[in-house]
Design a protein around this nucleic acid. Structure first.
Lengths: 356, 356
DNA sequence: CTGAAAGCGCTTACAG
DNA sequence: CTGAAAGCGCTTACAG
């Protein structure tokens, strides 16, 4: 027979005349609490807590007994309470511009899987591509007291950087590169992508390259690398069309005529995404321009289908899965007290498919 | 001058000889608390709380004064504490098999945007396609005490259904249809998709259709509808290849020869996803089979690029954005106390592109 | 419109 | 290996 708690036996024996200060009730019973389990198992609440948080410190028989009660009652600990009490929320925030049709989704997928295997849960925060309400978003995120944060891109606004520098929790910036990370960083240089694509075009003796891309931070960095490398080769005044995110096939289609208007001799286009590249390809076909002989097209993102359906396109591949996994490991190491490599450059590859 | 709290003035005047029961400290100061703001603003903590939660009940001047202190100090309320105290976590859980390369990502995107506009945050839980650890996943989710749950698919395992029926929080099942939803439902019938694709093929006088798909619940429901409708038309013993998720172009490529081995006269394939369809299309090309004249191919998902790059393919379109928006509204209405329509069938469309 | 007290359900920090 | 007490940072439920 388990040892009974003395207090558990002495239930309603408060003297009639006692001046108990009229206990205020806060709503009805909301569910099972740790004390319910403790009472049934004949242990103190702290022992039930240990069964969940440090089972190795509990005697095997006690462990078994408590677990059976937990199972029987269907008790699920309240982590709001647990987190408040322990200052360990077991929550990680992931701040992403968007997950729809995006390269980031596989990063978040792996990141989330890895974190949850380690006992953390992911709070998803979509920032959109506008910086407008990023302050509010950060407030919302920080109000949950996450133990770590994954950012997509490097923090742009100074006010955000400032705040994040001061929160004192592990932070990984991803999908970009900078010399001044807030904390840890897993990504690659979009500027260098632009340079590499420029060199790819130059090697093909392109004369009048143009560019179509969304006007977000990273796409603009690629543009800058592209432009500056071409300028070194004496090519200036590049035709350019910027579209607002999300980029789409339709936007790519519309862009080609606009580019040709700016540069009638256009013979190459660097696109901010594979969807844009497919749009440009479609428009080129309709204008009877041969790709790639008359018009070289390079996308970005290396969508899975593209290899099969559009072998005329060159594209840039980034290993989003590796970014997610590495970012998760960085955070986990840091949370475990290990001082982790701060910057990881995962690089990128230009994927030139067989020319048709 | 703001009215000072009496207690705020009387700081360290406890008599030396007092037998104060050795206050135990729990770690150092972890950050700003509501009392820090209250003290600086010369109000009670509860007033600061009201500034955040019911500003309309606070005098304009007080409101302003408190907000300035909040701003100056950079105070962010602790929602672990707030949620524990108020039993309102302001958290919504979204349980999704996967968000990478998936149709669900746009549903989650819109769902998350809509919920966050309403002051909720989304906890992302990836269930994978295996039911193995779904119990553990649900425990993790419920431990956060979300105020609502979005499920992808209808709950399969009885034990899960049982638990969800009893948690007493609003639940929306999505992306599927059933006569016995747990609570609310926004989706469509995968079985009917299969029926519709069968009819599409029958209208084209197909004789020997086959099927390749992942072996998840919903894909199998499509298969069943497909099979049974064909059986009604006297077509039985359909060639079939099941692949494990995630489905891919490569899996589609590998499937076609396997299908032809089962059915040498194969003249149509219903694919579980557009990626599989692209793979089958690629394999057909390599085998010099004309699509669609020799081989009809139907995908599922209507990926954006496909319209442009693979006009030979037919596919099935579902409005994932609408599912996400509707699901969010259902939950929000319910949270606001409105009794909401329980079942919404968003339907689907067979998209037949111009035949090349 | 504002506040003092009590309580939300856990875990820390001791103590045995 | 186990437990009693105190505290985590808020909000509820009154009271004025």
């Amino acid at each position: 027979m388990p040892n009974h708690k003395p207090t558990a036996a002495a239930s309603p024996d408060i003297p009639e005349g006692a001046t108990a200060p009229a206990k205020r009730l806060r709503g009805g019973p909301k569910g099972l609490r740790i004390t319910d389990v403790a009472t049934q198992a004949g242990v103190a609440p702290i022992t039930v807590s240990r069964v969940f948080n440090s089972p190795e410190t509990v005697a095997p028989e006690t462990l078994e007994r408590v677990r059976q009660v937990v199972q029987k009652l269907g008790y699920v600990p309240n982590r709001l309470a647990g987190g408040l009490s322990s200052s360990r929320s077991r929550l990680i925030a992931a701040i992403v511009p968007t997950i729809a049709h995006s390269l980031f989704s596989e990063t978040i997928q792996v990141f989330s899987e890895t974190m949850s295997r380690a006992g953390y849960q992911v709070l998803l925060a979509l920032s959109g591509y506008s910086d407008s309400s990023e302050e509010a978003l950060l407030d919302a995120v920080l109000s949950r007291r996450p133990e770590g944060v994954l950012l997509t891109g490097v923090a742009h606004a100074d006010s955000l950087r400032e705040r994040l520098l001061n929160v004192g929790m592990p932070i990984v910036e991803t999908w970009d590169m900078t010399g001044t990370p807030i904390d840890m960083l897993v990504g690659f240089s979009h500027y260098q992508v632009g340079v590499a694509v420029a060199e790819h075009f130059l090697a093909r003796n392109v004369r009048a390259p143009g560019l179509v891309s969304a006007n977000d931070d990273r796409a603009l960095a690629r543009r800058d690398g592209f432009r500056e490398r071409l300028a070194q080769a004496g090519i200036n005044g590049i035709a350019e069309v910027l579209v607002s995110p999300p980029s789409s096939v339709a936007a790519g289609k519309a862009a080609l005529p606009a580019l040709i208007e700016q540069a009638p001799n256009l013979d190459a286009v660097f696109c901010g995404s594979d969807l844009l590249a497919i749009g440009v390809l479609g428009a080129a076909k309709r204008m009877s321009m041969n790709v790639p002989s008359q018009l070289s097209i390079c996308g970005f993102g290396d969508l899975e289908f593209a290899t099969e359906t559009t072998p005329q396109l060159t594209t840039v591949r980034v290993d989003g899965t590796r970014i997610g996994l590495t970012a998760a490991r960085c955070l986990l190491d840091r949370l475990a007290g290990v001082d982790k490599t701060r910057v990881t450059d995962v690089g990128f590859h230009i994927v030139e498919r067989e020319t048709t």
